[in-house]
Design a protein around this nucleic acid. Sequence first.
DNA 1: GCCGTTTTCGGCCCGACTGTTTTCAGTCG
Length: 577
Amino acid sequence: MINNRELANTFTLIADLLEIKGENFYKTNAYRKAAENLLELSQEAHQIWEDGELQSIPGVGKAIADKIDELLRTGELEFLNRLTAEVPASLAEMVKIPDLGPKKVKLFWDELGITTVEELAEAAKAGKLADLPGMGEKSQARVLAGIEALGRRQTGRIPLGDAWGFGQSQLMFLRALPGVAAAEMAGSLRRMRDTIGDLDILVAAEDSEPVMEAFSSQPNISHIEGRGPTKTSVEFSNGLRAQVWVHPPQRFGTALQYATGSKDHNVRVREQALKKGFSLSEHALTREDGTELLCASEEEVYQAVGLPFIPPELREDRGEVQAGLAGTLPRLIKVANILSDLHTHSTWSDGRGSIREMAEAAIARGRKMLAVTDHSQSLGIGNGLSIERLMAQKEEINQLRQEFQGQITLLHGTEMEIKADGTLDYPDEILAQLDIVVASLHVAMRQPREQVTERMLTAIRNPHVDIIGHPTNRLIPDRAGADLDMEVIFQAAAEHGTALEINANPQRLDLNDIHARRAIELGVLLAVDTDAHAPEHFDFLPFGVATARRAWAAKENVINTWPVEKLLGWLENRPHP
DNA sequence: GCCGTTTTCGGCCCGACTGTTTTCAGTCG
């Protein structure tokens, strides 16, 4: 069955080819928008199709719904076949080259018959591009540079955790420059997406030139892609690209709002601004008579267009503007609300810290409760605990519990394997002796959807299992998660009162934002845990909380925010229908 | 092609930077 990604790729291809053909911008944009929305669905499109509800997908009207229907029924699309007969599909590869768009690609195709990236590189090297209308020596050189850059950038988006540290160091560098009043991260890093395309940084300064000069003179920059008074784009030698904007402090609010995006959110906000009689740009809110309303803070921007402040994590055009207008935005969970970490490891299995060290690290970060959940016996690679070792561990925790009394509550638990054959790794009578049970999938992830989903349901239905750890077991950026029927998982978790984890490790962030949001809608409780394997891993927490915020989670949706007594009561007497 | 508490037809955000141009087109975010 064709999945959402394949559908999205098909519509993106259609958009690219129509654009090269010179089709109306709004029509091509409609295909792109539909593709993006397909990727944001929490369910598979074919399930929606079976219910006959395709047009309930945002951006999908009759024409696109018919095309999805044809693709799902036949695996083919007559419209696309006719289109590729007219415009070679390989041209879509060429528009991915930086600084090349549909107009230039069409020019090379019309004038020189070029249909592939290889032919384009040859033509550029042979000097055939420079004489074309609108082209010149510099543009020809840019084409070659773009093809090289395309090769370098094949790695695509980078994990949030990797971009975070680099972004912070850039912020510190900029904030230390003379004349800089403020510097803030913007773009997808500020919105805390799980992967980051490039860094967007906003600087407040009266005089932009010295800032741009200092920024683009850093030794680890491999080349400067653009350099103007308000915007500079560079590529660092590690392959990461960054853009820096400089605006005067009194315009910082509009500029930060603009640079944070997302693009779709900004379109929505600007529509709202127009209704209030303003044209909104990064510089100001401009009235129809041309006078400007300057905003030093984002709060002022949102207020002026009639909206409450919208937290960056929500700015994805997933209904946040509408909710803001209706006054139904959630009160988002905060890092400071988290009292417990319910999924951590120690040297008993594959952790790098003793239980004592982990407890001390948790106390230092203000946690009130810590669950020690080492791996279970069948996970050999993780030094999983036999029943004998599990019981010995209980002794150690009982002793430490006395020692840490009044500082932190220690729980004895397990991260239990959901085994390949669908059974669980400890018998129920052992699980009954533990304070908390996290059940996770690590092996046989490539089983067919029905089989792996059924394994997960076995764990969810077990009355001793409290939390499902990193439900899909994806790894960012390389490993897709197991092919689970998430809708069925969520319904079962809601029914049995089993919490689903948002694993805060930036390589995991699993559940992701979209799945977690759907889970909340269906009444599922979430657990935000670090899965710490070392004391410093407790610092992953903000990534997990950010993912929960992106899922529109309020404090009460996340069991880690509950007071210790309430959470202990839940673990003890969880309703098990 | 999609969409609607100002619309079922007529809209659909706004600007920076570059290169090739003497006023603008293309690309990008």
